[in-house]
Design a protein around this nucleic acid. Structure first.
Lengths: 127, 127
DNA sequence: CGGGATCCGGATGGATACTG
DNA sequence: CAGTATCCATCCGGATCCCG
C-alpha cells in the first residue's frame, strides 16, 4: 500500500508535468501574456525550434495548454493555458515566494525588488 | 532589464533547485521522516548510489539539506532539512493539491483518496 | 551502512537548414 | 510565422563492483 501510494504520489504526478527544462518558463510566459511560438523563444538563446515544439506538444498532451488555430489563417496559432494549466498558478506563486523569502541576505533581490516582484506575480497569476 | 529580471526570475531560481529527477521525491521523503542514505533508496529501484550521492550533495550545496555526522560513529550519517528546505513545504503542498484538484474524473484518486491524502500531506508538511 | 570509481547506452538538448 | 528534418555532442541515469 505504501508502494501503491508512492507510485501515484500526487507530488510526483505534478512534477512529472513540469520538471522538464523549459516547461515552467513557458508557463510563466503564458501567465504573463505570451502566446506565440516565436515569442516564447525571446530571451532564451538556446531554446531550439525542436525542443520548443516538443515541449509545447507534451504540455498539450498533459492538458496544461491548448493549441488554437485561427480558422481563417491556419498559420495564425496561439497557445493558451487551459483550466488545468491555470490551476498551476499557486505552485508558481509559491516557487516565486520561496526564492524571495529565503533570500534573506538579499543576494539575488533587494528588499525593494522583493516587494515589486511579489506584486507583479500576484497580479499576473491571480488576475 | 527585462532580461536582467528574466535571468534571476524567482520561479526559475527555485526550479533550478528542484527540477532534477529525484530531488522532489527526496524532499518529500524527508518531510515524511526519512533521513538515511539507504532508506532513500527504498521504493526507488533505479536510483543508484552515484545518482543519490550526487543528488544529496547538490541539495546540500543549495542549502536545502544538511549532512549530519554522529561524532562518535562517523558512519552514522543523517540528512535533515534546513530552514530553507523546510520553506519548500508550501511548494510541495501546492504540487500535491494541483494533482488532487485537477483529477476531476477521479482517474488517479477516488474522492476518499483525495481527502485522506490531503490530510496526510498537511500533517507532514506543516507539522 | 554510506558511499566512491568505472563504464555504458539511451535520451535529450541544441545548431543549422529547410518548408508551406 | 510556425514549425519539420537531420545531425551531432553531451550528459546523465543506472548497473556493477569495490572500499572503510
Amino acid at each position: 500500500m505504501t508502494e501503491e501510494k508512492a507510485k501515484k504520489c500526487p507530488v510526483e504526478l505534478a512534477m512529472g508535468m513540469i520538471n522538464k527544462k523549459w516547461v515552467i518558463q513557458l508557463l510563466r510566459d503564458m501567465f504573463f501574456g505570451v502566446s506565440r511560438f516565436n515569442e516564447f523563444k525571446e530571451g532564451k538563446p538556446n531554446l531550439s525550434n525542436k525542443v520548443l515544439s516538443n515541449c509545447l506538444k507534451e504540455m498539450e498532451l498533459n492538458g496544461l495548454i491548448e493549441r488554437i488555430v485561427d480558422g481563417d489563417d491556419s498559420s495564425n496559432i496561439e497557445y493558451k493555458l487551459t483550466e488545468k494549466g491555470l490551476a498551476l498558478n499557486k505552485v508558481i506563486y509559491e516557487l516565486a515566494m520561496f526564492s524571495l523569502t529565503t533570500d534573506i541576505d538579499n543576494k539575488y533581490y533587494s528588499e525593494e525588488d522583493k516587494r515589486e516582484i511579489s506584486q507583479i506575480f500576484e497580479k499576473q497569476l491571480f488576475d
